[in-house]
Design a protein around this nucleic acid. Structure first.
Lengths: 122, 122
DNA sequence: TTGACATATTCCCATATGGGAATGTTATTA
DNA sequence: TAATAACATTCCCATATGGGAATATGTCAA
């Protein structure tokens, strides 16, 4: 099976960088599509397509204003992502602690990073 | 262009549900691949592939132990996701606040409005 | 009605994907 | 050395994707 659809959930929808930009832009206040196009320097059809995805997963809301469509980020829909990442908060705090302790204890650079996969490009 | 590679960044890597499960499972302590396979009921090759993706974006670390490979979630790598979602925190709080205020007004119409009645812009 | 403006949709297409199945690789033990 | 355990990689493939380009839809103004 191929990759899950971008519209399957917020995690997939937000994986796209441009969509993240749009969400950030639309968070403070609602905006017509044209504003997004000019502000983020994207093609109009592209923006419409991204908005469709965001709308389908509930990350944005719309309302019509004459011939314009006003979109706004539905911040509520981002909470699940926030909550998921929060479950790791205690762990990265522990890690920071360990790293610090270790660095203070040893100056020996014997850090074996096993088989790092061939990283193309850069 | 097609969708960005799952290995392009943490956002894309985490979009896959099974990979999220793996990260959760590997957060408390390091585990060999076999444990993941039996605990999450996934095919071994599948797990290895997911681990490769997670490794490439730095979401997990590995070390060899005999013929086993011990993986562990690198919680630090999840912080960027957490931080990004955090930028929306104030917005969903506003939303909740609006909802709450409205609910209170409706429940007790005699009571005057609490503090400032921020008028929506347009 | 016509024309202009604001968005949305469709078509085309190269590409990465994740699962299944089979095979490869590395390390331990007999 | 051979056998086996523990993982990793490769091959095959149906599929959703995002961008570009063209076109369709919907709304307001004259």
């Amino acid at each position: 099976m191929p990759r899950a659809a971008t519209t399957s959930d917020s995690f997939n929808a937000v994986a796209e960088p441009r969509r993240r930009e749009i969400l950030t832009y639309l968070a403070p206040q609602e905006r017509p599509v044209g504003d997004i196009v000019s502000a983020l320097r994207m093609e109009q059809p592209s923006v419409s397509k991204h908005l469709r995805v965001l709308l389908e997963v509930g990350l944005v809301d719309v309302r019509r204003d004459g011939r314009r469509m006003l979109y706004r980020t539905n911040a509520e829909a981002i909470r699940p992502l926030h909550q998921w990442t929060s479950t790791f908060e205690r762990f990265w705090q522990h890690q920071l602690h360990r790293v610090k302790e270790r660095a203070e204890r040893m100056a020996d650079p014997h850090k074996s990073k096993p088989a790092s996969p061939p990283k193309e490009k850069s």
